[in-house]
Every structure is written in structure tokens, then in C-alpha cells.
């Protein structure tokens, strides 16, 4: 097997393992469109990174966090329905990113950013995936209980002494980090699928939040492995292949007769 394929596999598995548990929160809290909006702003982050000459991953995280803060403050104004707001922001952020990239005359492989370039992962990216991923999982582990509490009911959690604002912000930050890390794998247009599809698949067999989080990570890893095989033997684009396999797993999980989970 070629080394680039091994790198792709190791990188992909790392991303799937992080995206799974966070994806569970995205599903539970109905944040799919929110995640999509953040992902769309990633290209703007790339342009910003080039402009300010800072690390691109950091620039993407900063851009996603900035956007989520803006979103929260706009939501508070109740000027416009949240889904409309998200729609405006998602596509504007992507367009702004594309325009900025063109104006700044940045040479980049646009397709790689939009749809991912799994096979181009090198040791440098692996370091980012596993370093950043370990940080994300550690934070998730630390914040697990309060995150579950605010997912059940934010006001109840607040009365019970949870610092709701801080926990909610942390979740946004974690999602922003995962987007920055995962962009290399499936691209900004497909990141949300890696968050949502494995989690939704795992729901079929999970009877506790922990089972669903771990199940989502496992489903994601299966999708990455299967997607890479498909890409290798079928000469298909790697990112979309991963998503297609994830979809097949999802469909299979709903076709198989299973006991009713909790």
C-alpha cells in the first residue's frame, strides 16, 4: 500500500473519531444548519489567514467562532427567523470567501477546499488532526455532563448551577475546531454530513448518549475506511466517497430489524 493511502486512512479515522461525538450534539440540539453555516465560512477564514499571514487552521477557527458570536447576537435581536438568518450567513460567507480569494489573488486548489482532498494528507496535517483532535476530545470529556444538561433544558441547567452561556460557547468553539480539522478530509461543503450521518446511524442502536457518541465515531471510521476503498478501487473522489458510504450505512441501519433502543 502506498504511504499516501496510509496517511489518508490514519487522518480520516482521526477526523471521524472526533466528528462522531460532536455530531451527536449537533443532532440532539438540531444544529445541523448551524454547523453548515460555520463550515461555509471556512473559506473566508482561509482568505483571512493568507491576508494576515497566520496559520490557516487558526484562521478558520477564528472565523467560525466570530461567525457564531455574530449569529448569537443577531438571534437575540429576534429580527428575523433563525433558519433565514443561517441561510443568509451560510451563502454570504461562502460567496465572500470566494470573492476574497479571487481579489487577493490567492492561488489555491478550490476543489480541495470545497470537497476535500483526503489523499493529499501529509505528516503535517496528521499532527494537526491528532493534536487538535486530542484537545477537542479532552474538552468534550471534561464538559460532557454540563453539555448533556444544557441539551436537555438550558433553563433547568442554569437553575441547577450550570454556567450555560459558557458551556454553549464552548460547544460552538469545539464545532469550529472540528470544522477546521475536518475541512481537509471532506471539504467545507460536506463537513456537516460527517457530523450528522454517523450520529444519526448510531441512534438506531444506542440506548444512552455515551453509546451514541461512541457509535457515531465507529460509524464514521467505517465510512472513512469504506470510502477510501471505494475511492482506491473505483477511482472516485475520496471525500464524496466517504459520504456515500456513510449514507449506505445509515440506510442499512434503518433497514435492519433492530430492537427498539431507548
Amino acid at each position: 500500500m502506498d504511504s499516501f493511502l496510509i496517511y489518508a486512512l490514519i487522518g480520516g479515522l482521526g477526523v471521524a473519531a472526533i466528528a462522531g461525538p460532536l455530531g451527536a450534539f449537533v443532532v440532539w440540539r438540531r444544529m445541523a444548519y448551524f454547523g453548515d453555516t460555520l463550515a461555509h465560512s471556512a473559506l473566508l477564514g482561509v482568505a483571512l489567514g493568507f491576508l494576515l499571514e497566520i496559520n490557516l487552521n487558526l484562521a478558520i477557527i477564528a472565523c467560525c467562532v466570530g461567525l457564531s458570536l455574530l449569529l448569537v447576537s443577531l438571534q437575540r435581536q429576534h429580527l428575523i427567523a433563525t433558519d433565514t438568518l443561517l441561510g443568509i450567513m451560510a451563502h454570504s460567507a461562502l460567496s465572500l470567501g470566494l470573492v476574497a480569494v479571487a481579489l487577493l489573488e490567492i492561488r489555491l486548489d478550490l476543489m480541495a477546499y470545497l470537497f476535500g482532498d483526503l489523499l493529499a494528507i501529509g505528516p503535517q496535517q496528521l499532527l494537526w488532526i491528532y493534536g487538535g483532535g486530542a484537545l477537542v476530545l479532552l474538552l468534550l470529556y471534561k464538559l460532557w455532563q454540563p453539555l448533556l444538561a444544557i441539551t436537555i433544558n438550558e433553563e433547568l441547567a442554569k437553575v441547577e448551577g450550570v454556567k450555560v452561556g459558557r458551556i454553549r460557547l464552548s460547544l460552538m468553539l469545539l464545532i469550529a475546531m472540528v470544522i477546521a480539522i475536518a475541512m481537509k478530509i471532506v471539504g467545507l461543503l460536506l463537513i456537516t454530513s460527517l457530523l450528522i450521518i454517523p450520529a444519526a446511524t448510531a441512534r438506531r442502536v444506542a440506548s444512552s448518549p455515551e453509546q451514541m457518541a461512541i457509535g457515531a465515531a465507529v460509524c464514521g471510521c467505517l465510512a472513512v475506511t469504506g470510502g477510501l476503498l471505494l475511492s482506491w478501487y473505483g477511482d472516485t473522489p475520496a471525500g464524496p466517497s466517504v459520504v456515500v458510504i456513510a449514507l449506505l450505512l445509515f440506510i442499512a441501519s434503518y433497514l435492519l430489524p433492530l430492537r427498539q433502543p431507548a
Partner: peptide
């Protein structure tokens, strides 16, 4: 505190 209604998403195994 007992809130009026909890809206726990069906996808949340609990």
C-alpha cells in the same frame, strides 16, 4: 425547579 415542558429531541437516547 420543574420547567413547564422539556423538549428533548427524539434522537437523544435517554
Amino acid at each position: 425547579y420543574m420547567p413547564q415542558k422539556l423538549q428533548i429531541d427524539k434522537t437523544f437516547p435517554l
